[in-house]
Structure formats: structure tokens, C-alpha cells
């Protein structure tokens, strides 16, 4: 289980972006988190990915409470979660060729010898072709770069995947291809998924369960108490 309980997080202690947010993802489950832009859902995704330390609240990974974030988090825990971000241009080091981009997590964790095998497996799985692997990010399109970023997130075989607006910048066909790649990986490994986004149609099609931001967290600037009766009614009917 990936469990977030009562998380409050932000970049300024006086004005947290996320207030009292809770959600759980069961192993193998795909949960979609739907919310308007700027609501704080990306911050919550970073908390879940061990990239941003919350001010309060608990994160449980398979029952174990997480005590440290970023570099302080144990490496095994960090690499158990694969992350894909919204903007491929910003999430790829501009100096690395795609092959190095994808292989970097293996090298960083001292598993250099697995590089050739994993690259051979992942290149077709995310829909890249071998000739693209030698290029640098500015020499490929947004869609191709995002495919490489997905391959990087999968290269360490994570048990959890967090996709933060993974397809917001992409066309319909690339979106469908990337979602299919994620689903193939999940079908093969049983990994759980937290997909964050604002496209209701997409998330409903993609995920087992759809959560609206209003159901997950107290309202943004947070005068509302946590009593659920005072929340605004969800705009989105629960997925069927």
C-alpha cells in the first residue's frame, strides 16, 4: 500500500499548498487524482515520490512509515517509486544523450552491467527506435523525449509509478502510446499507479479509481475544517 495520511505540504510554512490530504493506492491499483491546475496536486505527488518533505502528516509505504525525504530517504525506498513529470524538456538533463538519460538510474545505483539488457527491453516498450538513443534532448520532439523519461522511470523496475500530468503537453496518439506502455509495465509487474492530471476523460479511461482533489484535501487556502460535511461537493461523480 502507498498511503498518504493528513499531509500538509508547501513551500512557505505560512501558506501550505496542500492541506490535510489523504489517499491510498493499493498494490496493482491505478488511482487517478483529478484537480484543476495550481491546486497542489503536483506537490502531493512529489511528497508521495519522496521528493518533497511534508510539514505534517504521514506517508506509509507497504505499512512502513517514511521518515526521510530526498537524499535522506534510503535509496531502496526512493527507487521503489518511478516518477514521470509534466514537461519532458525540464525533466531531462539537456547534456545527456537519451541512452544515458535512460541508463542513468542504473549507473547511479551501481547496476551498470544491466544497462545493455534494460535498454534493449525498454526501447521498444516505450516506442522509441535505437537511432534516437544517441541524440540529445534538443534533437528529439517532446513526445519522443517523454517516452525516454518514461523509460528512465521504469528502468529500475519500481513497485509504484507516479505520473504527474505525464501527457498534458502531448498529442492524442502519443498520449495513448505512453498510457499503453505504462499499462503493459503494470500488467507485467503488478506495480501500483498514481496518475495526477486534469483531463477527466483520460484519467477515467486509464485508472481503476478516480479521486477528485476536493475529496482528497481540504480546500486550498484552508479555512475549511476537516469535517467532511463542509467540503464542496465533488464536481466529478465517482468513476463507475
Amino acid at each position: 500500500m502507498l498511503e498518504l495520511h493528513d499531509i500538509t505540504a508547501g513551500y512557505d510554512r505560512k501558506a501550505p499548498v496542500v492541506r490535510n490530504a489523504s489517499l491510498t493506492v493499493a498494490p496493482g491499483e491505478a488511482v487517478g487524482l483529478l484537480g484543476p491546475s495550481g491546486c497542489g496536486k503536483s506537490t502531493l505527488a512529489r511528497v508521495a515520490a519522496l521528493l518533497h518533505r511534508p510539514e505534517s502528516g504521514t506517508l506509509l509505504l507497504d505499512g512502513e512509515p517514511v521518515r526521510h525525504w530526498r537524499h535522506r530517504a534510503p535509496r531502496d525506498l526512493r527507487t521503489a517509486i518511478g516518477v514521470v513529470f509534466q514537461q519532458p524538456r525540464l525533466s531531462a538533463d539537456p547534456r545527456l544523450r537519451l541512452i544515458d538519460l535512460i541508463a542513468e538510474p542504473l549507473r547511479a545505483t551501481g547496476r551498470r552491467d544491466e544497462v545493455p539488457d534494460r535498454i534493449t527491453e525498454l526501447t521498444p516498450a516505450v516506442g522509441l527506435t535505437p537511432d534516437l538513443l544517441d541524440r540529445r534532448p534538443h534533437e528529439v520532439s517532446d513526445g519522443q523525449l517523454q517516452r525516454a523519461c518514461l523509460a528512465r522511470a521504469l528502468v529500475l523496475r519500481p513497485r509504484w509509478l507516479i505520473c504527474d500530468e505525464m501527457t498534458a503537453m502531448l498529442d492524442a496518439s502519443t498520449t495513448a502510446a505512453l498510457v499503453a506502455a505504462v499499462e503493459n509495465y503494470r500488467a507485467a509487474t503488478g506495480a501500483g499507479l498514481l496518475a495526477v492530471g486534469h483531463d477527466q476523460t483520460l484519467l477515467r479511461r486509464w485508472c481503476d479509481r478516480l479521486l477528485h482533489w476536493d475529496e482528497v484535501a481540504a480546500a486550498g487556502m484552508g479555512k475549511l475544517p476537516r469535517a467532511s460535511g463542509l467540503r464542496e461537493p465533488s464536481v466529478v461523480p465517482p468513476a463507475t
Binding site: T129, G143, T175, A177, T201
Partner: peptide
């Protein structure tokens, strides 16, 4: 046709390959 079929409200199937 492939582009429309890739939409999540339709078949949600990507066009094979890349441009």
C-alpha cells in the same frame, strides 16, 4: 482516423510507430 481513435473517449489506441 488514427489520431481520433487515439482519444481516450474513443478507442484509446495509439497510431503505431512515430512520425
Amino acid at each position: 482516423r488514427g489520431l481520433l481513435d487515439a482519444l481516450p473517449e474513443r478507442a484509446f489506441l495509439p497510431i503505431p510507430g512515430m512520425p
